[in-house]
Amino acid sequence: MWRDALLVASKDVRIELRSRVALWQVLPFAVLVLVLFGFALGPGPATLRSAAPGLYWLAVLFSTVLATQRSVAIESGEGTRDGLRLSGIDPGGVFLGKAAAVALQLVAVQVLLGAGLVVLFGVRLEAWWLALVASVLATIGLSAAGVLYGALSAGLRVRETLLPLLVLPIVAPVLIAGSRAWSAAVSGAVGPGTSWLKILGPFAAVYVAVGIGLYGPLQETS
């Protein structure tokens, strides 16, 4: 399964590097979300700093939807989807590989957004490790949930519009826990902050496990 995951992830990453969808669409979109929310909140530095973690995670969530849609689109052709099913490749490996490729894109998004928070909103992380752990767990959870629901909507004509409706409510716990953990990381209140990791960790573990188990059946039905 791990070998298959590596094969699929390298294939998806190579396709993304060539198509440059992440570079020219996902990354600018994430920054745009951050800036526009900043405009909506007004120029007050204190307001921006307190809202920054929530804005950051909203931008990450929206970017997850875009990256997932692209991941689904790679396999949307009748021929490529059949080719993957006929290859005998482990469906769990396909899920892990596609989730890993989405996760890599989300890492790039978060690096850019993190820099944006520092430059545009003047945010300083007092407990950077807390923010890092929260981001790692959230990225795993978001990419796993995104790819799982992407598989659910893959065969539908309305998948582009349906996917956000499926994914965004499901990942609301990540938005809440990620924002709270990052707020704690900004303020330096490590104790309350670590409690939010107890939501992010199980969320990631559950969606990875469910994805490995359900991706194959979903491919058969979609």
């Binding site: 298959d4 094969l7 190579r14 060539r18 790679i74 052709g77 021929g79 005998g88 490749i89």
Partner: peptide
């Protein structure tokens, strides 16, 4: 089994050589 469908089962951004290699690597 090998299926040649109506649609060529190719990834657009990969070359012909990469597509064939991926199919073989996926088959182990």
């Amino acid at each position: 089994v090998g299926l040649l469908g109506h649609d060529a089962s190719l990834y657009d951004e990969l070359s012909a050589a990469e597509n064939v290699r991926f199919a073989l690597r996926a088959a182990g």
